[in-house]
Design a protein around this nucleic acid. Structure first.
Lengths: 153, 153
DNA sequence: GAATATAGTTGCCAACTGCAACCTTCTAGT
DNA sequence: ACTAGAAGGTTGCAGTTGGCAACTATATTC
């Protein structure tokens, strides 16, 4: 086996390991994200919470843009938006540029609760990752973004 | 604001970013992992595929150990094991040390298909992450494992 | 040997999302 | 201006998934 082919094998194994770790992550996250969601609001579902954090970060956005970014069906977004409206955590205004569309944004109540919960979750996660330097966490976030971009297409 | 408190703020923001990227990952992965699952077997569901990859890696394991490792209910594991047995992708033998337990392992058919699919998915993902050096991918896998360990407790 | 704990199965139910049909509004081509 | 088709969003339907609890069978503990 040449050095080049050995390197290819190693990279293939790396990618298999990557997928398996990611699979574990998906399943363990269900529980953790559910706890976060309930901390923001007792009746807030996990997926709806993820939608809210996305909208909070990306300012006023169309529902269809969110659906495309997150890679899920627009019907699912529509229901979750209704859920957030019922809970009073979302602002929805008509898009001035397009009569069909509406713009979604997290309202003040939602922003306040998210800040509160992020503080608590930071304490929790920091307790688990406390020995991981900031630089490594930053690397992790960067690589996650890179991986997410790869998943997008 | 002191330098120390500024560093804390930065780390808090890092962890918020981390959670949001992870949330995006969860949603995008649903589709990608589903495609992988169907590549292994047309009737293989996404979650069952993740179970199979775990069992393949961790050799003969008890169902209860899998449930604990992956952080999901043992009832869910039970159904997915039945599904894998019906598809002929799993070996199940009584645990010689415990009459209540059974040991699960991926059979030869499953291993062969997983290798085949991992080769194809390696080509796909490599096309997306091709410019990411092996060292960075290895770092990513390591940090994922670290994060998963944090989620475990 | 009785009480308790653990491995696994099953029924029930809530959450999530893909698909498709539908309505409304916008855009393009004529 | 008119029409055809595209795009934003809502809703009904169905399939997947996992939590919870009750149950059987086997192990362990006292």
């Amino acid at each position: 086996m040449t050095a080049a082919s050995a390197a290819r094998v190693d990279r293939a194994e790396l990618l298999v390991d990557l997928e398996r770790e990611v699979g574990v992550m998906v399943r363990r996250l269900r529980r953790v994200l559910g706890e976060r969601a309930r901390a923001v609001h007792p009746d807030l579902q996990t997926s709806t919470y993820l939608l809210l954090t996305w909208v909070d970060k990306h300012g006023p956005v169309r529902a269809s843009a969110v659906a495309e970014s997150l890679g899920i069906d627009k019907g699912a977004i529509s229901r979750q938006v209704q859920h957030l409206l019922e809970l009073g955590l979302l602002d929805r205004t008509p898009d001035p540029d397009d009569g069909r569309a509406t713009l979604l944004s997290a309202n003040d109540e939602a922003k306040a609760r998210l800040v509160e919960v992020s503080h608590a979750s930071r304490l929790w996660l920091d307790g688990k990752l406390g020995d991981l330097p900031d630089a490594e966490v930053a690397d992790f976030v960067r690589l996650l973004g890179r991986y997410n971009a790869a998943l997008d297409a």
